[in-house]
Amino acid sequence: MNTNPLGSRATRLFVVLSAFLAVNALCAEFVGVKIFALEPTLGLDPLNWNLFGQSGSLSFTSGVLLWPFVFLMTDIINEYFGRRGVQFISWLTVGLIVYGFIAAYLSISLVPAEFWIRVNQERGVPDMQAAFSNIFGQGMWTIAGSVTAFLIGQLIDVSVFHRIRILTGERWIWLRATGSTLVSQLIDSFIVLYIAFVLGPQQWPIPLFMAVATVNYAYKVLMAFALIPFIYLTRRAIHAYMGEETAHEMQKQASTV
């Protein structure tokens, strides 16, 4: 009997894929508090786009840069470990996100050292405690929106992925991976912003909400297609690591669980 819990290559693969998914989701939650302008970031003049009556630079949450990798890992895990694998890591990731915010709120409540405030004032931050609180102390509406959208998005992604898989078998992994992401993120992109910024205390007007949500979703659509080569590179690496016969057996079992 093998008593080594990491003795199985399949177990190690699941740990690596899950860890990459979870850390990207957690990082996206914390950096997502920053809204950035795309054109100035790229050194370009503002496009002065006009959408739903809103205009100016294309604005995104910083977290949107990482979420496509979360959904990519979701589809890879789905491909080789099935619904149960995705559901397990989805709930675990939610728990880690909540744990992370609890840790952040506890850190905010700690009384700052005077020299820490003073040193950062010399660096151009007038009130480091306030800055720390604003960055890490995201409102409950934002946290609730993010967690709710993530869970709903994951459940929809799993469902669409398997429906496409029934029709295509093991062929066209790009179609089920990209198709499931396009559907799940259409819903995810709007839910998180609606809960966080429309229902929440900021009370965004609907045109602003629609404009920002649409732009963020458009980015996710572009990334879904841009990451197609990475899907096949990851698939090739997994088959090389697991062996063709074992990898195909994992895919077959994943389609039934």
Results as ranks from 00 to 15, higher is better:
G56S: 06
A19T: 15
E244C: 05
M242L: 15
S8I: 07
A177N: 15
L92H: 01
A103G: 01
A226K: 05
R176K: 11
V111Q: 08
I231R: 12
V158Y: 03
A19L: 15
A211C: 07
D127Q: 01
Q202E: 12
E79K: 07
W67G: 01
H239E: 14
C27K: 06
H162V: 00
T142G: 08
Y105G: 00
G100T: 05
Q185F: 06
I228W: 11
A149K: 05
D157M: 02
T214H: 06
I143G: 00
V119M: 07
N120M: 10
F36G: 14
I231M: 09
N48T: 12
Y232R: 10
Y217K: 07
D75G: 10
A131S: 14
T74C: 03
N4F: 00
I238A: 09
P205R: 03
G32V: 07
E245L: 13
I164M: 08
L106N: 06
N216A: 13
N134V: 08
N24Q: 13
G243H: 05
N50A: 11
D157R: 00
A196W: 10
R12D: 03
R12C: 04
M1V: 14
A144M: 04
M210R: 09
V98Q: 02
P68Y: 04
M73T: 09
L96W: 02
I166D: 01
K34D: 10
T41A: 15
I89R: 11
V64K: 11
V158T: 06
I164H: 02
C27P: 02
E249R: 14
N4G: 01
F30K: 01
I89L: 09
M128T: 13
V86Y: 02
